[in-house]
């Protein structure tokens, strides 16, 4: 069964029927938003059943669309969180990617500004590495990007999409070794993106992010995960009651290769490790339960089939 990421938008009336339907079909609800009279569900559903959900959702004014980024966590990295980058550029990009289903976190570096003085510390490096992908939003000058980017990428293991003011070709020419994706003509700006050419550049960012993540998915498919992250999320929310008391919008954040569980590591790390999945197999057997550098959260990295010899 192939699960595809989708977004369902519809009225609040009888939306629980759609949730039940998705769960009965073997899909997973990743996130549920209630905005006034509207419900937005981000879910993974079986590919063959999309039409069925659409048919059942139609009388409830529901609409289902493919959202390639559902189930991914993306870091939007800016050199700082000063007025030079906020709220436009960084917030606009982070918010736009979010519309396509990704969970984005903004990472404002403590000392990322400047050309010669830019730095990346170990905490920032580790936090970025906990994501599926990092979008770097840099400035308008080629000279600066060329000089500071090698420092800002040091130790980053996840794919990088680099955005900057110079055209895409110019960015490709100055970055060595190459990164996974480039989007040019989106550097520092101080106004809201509302004109069509600006929106189309945001679309370019989403397109590039999707392309890079698709490539990563293909790589991962060669050695599949021992358990799908969405399924593991379901098991944790079923077996760990305390997760329902967490007030964060996504108590369990789904990533491509794992989960971020927003519970304190010291108390719940050992509990999670021992939590059973199926016939004597525990989470600890299939995944690494690690302390996250983000607050005191837990990071679960699911091991691939080649390491566990198990697929559940």
């Amino acid at each position: 069964m192939i699960l595809v990421p989708v977004t369902y938008k519809g009225g609040i009336y009888r939306h629980d029927e759609i949730i039940d339907l998705i769960e009965d079909l073997g899909g997973y609800i990743i996130q549920k938003h209630m905005i006034a009279q509207e419900v937005v569900l981000q879910a993974l559903v079986p590919k063959d059943d999309i039409e069925l959900i659409r048919k059942i959702g139609k009388p409830l004014t529901g609409d289902i669309t493919l959202s390639p980024l559902v189930g991914t966590e993306i870091a939007v990295v800016t050199p700082s969180l000063e007025i030079h980058h906020l709220p436009h550029a960084s917030c606009d990009v982070a918010e736009y990617i979010r519309r396509f289903g990704a969970k984005t976190n903004m990472v404002g570096l403590a000392r990322g500004f400047g050309k010669r003085i830019a730095q990346l510390n170990d905490e920032e490096r580790d936090v970025i590495n906990e994501h599926d992908l990092a979008v770097y939003l840099l400035g308008d000058f080629e000279t600066c990007i060329e000089k500071k980017f090698p420092v800002l990428r040091r130790g980053i293991m996840v794919p990088i999409v680099l955005c900057g003011g110079p055209p895409t070709e110019a960015l490709k020419a100055i970055i060595d070794p190459p990164v996974d994706g480039y989007v040019g003509s989106i550097g520092r700006f101080m106004h809201r993106t509302k004109e069509s050419d600006e929106i189309s550049r945001l679309d370019d960012v989403v397109e590039e992010v999707t392309r890079v993540l698709d490539k990563k998915r293909e790589e991962m498919a060669k050695d599949p995960l021992s358990i799908s992250p969405a399924r593991l999320m379901d098991i944790i929310s079923e077996k760990i009651d305390e997760i329902h008391e967490v007030l964060s919008p996504t108590p369990i954040t789904v990533q491509m290769g794992g989960l971020r569980v927003k519970l304190p590591y010291d108390t719940f790390g050992p509990v999670l490790r021992k939590t059973g999945i199926d016939e004597g197999v525990t989470i600890g057997d299939l995944a690494e339960v690690l302390p996250s550098r983000m607050r005191d959260y837990i990071l679960i990295r699911i091991k691939p089939f080649s390491e566990t010899n198990l697929v559940i």
């Binding site: 000058f141 003011g165 110079p166 106004h191």
Partner: peptide, 16 residues
């Protein structure tokens, strides 16, 4: 010296 960068900064100065 960088034309593209200069154009961006013209817009930035205007907006600010």
């Amino acid at each position: 010296p960088e034309k593209a960068g200069g154009d961006y900064y013209r817009r930035i100065a205007d907006v600010v």
